[in-house]
């Protein structure tokens, strides 16, 4: 198996507070790694450091051996890091379809294309519709994103990520705030991507049943540090995790 993404001693300080503290971890192709830990453990911050929304104080991020640390977020996305956000993060007054189409367009590179009509790009259109079908949102294609219920906005977020077709999928609590009957759509989709075994998937997740179902590997962050790493069953059973994270739930 080959390493696709790697962080080396990745750290970030906010003033005196060390939010992520020297995390070294390598992620293999085709493996879904769940990142767990209590609130404030630094999971989302770790994601931000990888995808470039935050600059690291120290350490490095490598994608297929290439050092990304100095690159901007757009550049990292172009190189293959795809990120879905924990808080829904869309283009609210653009339509559902346009939200997805922008992702396709972004992949096509710098657009000097200001003389053709956006609506006449039928290939972009068709591919965006195909993405929406995968998350079962095709009937909502012409709605403004802001008009969708929360669960559908989460699905749209995933559809955008599918459109980017990155090497590394980064999901930050993809099912947060979704109703019980909507959750399977998203989980099935993530499982489908995992089963293709050619993508690297990082999943920040609180729900243990989701982790058990999807994860090939679990890493635990606690107070910014990587404290456990291994197969899901072993990690969940380990003392350190019981104390750091699960202990809270089991008291």
């Amino acid at each position: 198996m080959s390493i696709v993404l790697e962080t080396r001693d990745l750290s970030v300080h906010f003033g005196g507070h060390v939010a992520v503290d020297g995390v070294s971890c390598a992620f293999d192709r085709g493996i879904l790694t769940a990142i767990v830990g209590p609130n404030g453990a630094g999971k989302s911050t770790y994601f931000n450091l990888i995808s470039g929304q935050l600059r690291a104080t120290a350490g490095a991020v490598l994608l297929e051996g290439r050092d990304l640390t100095a690159l901007s977020a757009p550049k990292r996305t172009q190189l293959g890091l795809g990120r879905a956000f924990q808080l829904t993060n869309l283009f609210p007054s653009l339509t559902v379809l346009e939200n997805v189409r922008l992702a396709f367009q972004a992949r096509l590179g710098p657009g000097l294309d200001f003389l053709t009509m956006a609506i006449s790009h039928s290939e972009l259109h068709d591919r965006a519709v195909a993405c929406l079908e995968r998350v079962k949102l095709q009937t909502r294609a012409t709605f403004p994103a802001a008009a969708l219920p929360h669960g559908d906005q989460r699905k749209l977020e995933v559809a955008i990520l599918l459109a980017l077709d990155p090497l590394v999928f980064m999901f930050d609590e993809p099912t947060a705030g979704m109703s019980v009957d909507e959750v399977p759509t998203i989980l099935d989709l993530i499982e489908e991507i995992r089963e293709q075994r050619d993508k690297t998937i990082l999943l920040v997740e609180h729900k243990m049943e989701v982790v058990r179902r999807l994860a090939d590997r679990v890493i635990v962050l606690h107070q910014g540090k990587l404290v456990a790493d291994g197969a899901p069953a072993a990690v969940v059973a380990s003392t350190i995790v019981q104390e750091a994270y699960l202990g809270v739930a089991h008291v």
Partner: peptide, 21 residues
Amino acid sequence: SPMGRVLQAIRENEFRAEALG
């Protein structure tokens, strides 16, 4: 145009537009 859609995307959510690459 496709570029015009990007301009709207920047207005709507520049942070997200950058995250799209």
